[in-house]
Amino acid sequence: MPKHSQHRRRGKHALDADDVEWLETTAVPDTFDGPPEGDRWSTWDQSTPTEKGPRPHPDWLVTELAAVDTEHGVLKTGKEADVHLISRGVPGTDRVCLLAAKRYRSSEHRLFHRDAGYLEGRRTHDNRMNRAMANRTAFGRQAIAGQWAVAEFSALCRLWELGVPVPYPVQIVGTEILQEFIGTPDGYAAPRLAQVSDGLDSLWEQLVAAMVTLAREGLAHGDLSPYNLLVHDGRLVIIDLPQIVDVIAHPAGPSFLDRDARNVATWFAAKGHPTAAPDTLATLLRHEARLTD
């Protein structure tokens, strides 16, 4: 037998001495396709046209494919989702915008401790998925997370086009919703209504107008309170809309409308607003939703 054949043969993917030397002396980046700066490339091109916000897109929105996303920390934590602040900009230019990235929790987390009432009427045509969602299996919880994300993005798009004061919905990627950041250019989030004491007359008028617009469309926020209303430069902005309710189709629709009215009117009344009356607001909303004569 030839001498060289006595050596152990290399596997077809084995490295020879030259390969090993190159790897040891050459700086190889951890990720070959990563951005030159920031945490990830912009995800703008990962969303289909129907997964992007209404046209025309705002001028402030960065849509260039060369843009990168940079994480700046958590704005808000919750049982169902966390909201992160990110900047999306084109390196080497002044093209940059701030976005709020709402990320619904993955399947190993407990999702929507009060979701049963909201999920009414959101059954799919897939019986296996319906059973998984009802039994809260890992697959079912992930499906619920996807449903909530899609429901919220769709609601934001619809309300934006109706002129309801909501953040502009930028895009949805899986269970992440990117939307307009409501706050200062240096990244300070706008306060919740619960933290505000000035300008309440104007804020009450804005809120009633927005709720009337929703009711005329047969909708209720479903979980409205002073904690999911932001105030920015005197403007009221409604957030947290995954549980938006069709008050006509949902069997308990009117009760959601009444609860929204009670939550916000009670708060304004406690602040001394003279016309904030829960029953009066609920009656108005039921009338606008054509639930009463």
Rank of each mutant, 00 (worst) to 15 (best):
M1G: 15
P2Y: 05
P2E: 13
H4F: 11
Q6C: 09
H7L: 15
G11W: 12
K12H: 10
A14H: 07
T25M: 10
P29L: 03
D30Q: 11
G34S: 01
G38S: 12
R40H: 06
G53M: 00
L61F: 04
A67E: 03
A67D: 05
V68Y: 02
V68H: 03
R95A: 11
R95S: 04
R95D: 13
L98C: 04
A100V: 03
R103F: 08
H109E: 13
R110K: 15
F112A: 15
H113R: 15
R114L: 13
R123L: 02
A132W: 04
A134K: 12
R136W: 05
F139N: 10
R141F: 01
R141P: 01
A145S: 00
G146V: 03
V150E: 15
A151M: 13
C157H: 07
R158Y: 11
E161C: 02
Y168V: 08
I172H: 01
I172W: 02
I172C: 01
I172L: 05
I177A: 04
F181Y: 08
Y188F: 10
A189F: 07
R192Q: 11
L193M: 05
V208Y: 05
T213F: 02
R216T: 10
L219Y: 02
G222W: 04
L224T: 03
V231I: 05
D240S: 00
I244F: 05
I248A: 12
L257Q: 03
D258Q: 14
N263G: 11
A265M: 14
W267P: 10
A269T: 11
A270K: 13
P274H: 09
P274R: 07
P278H: 07
D279S: 09
L284C: 11
A289W: 10
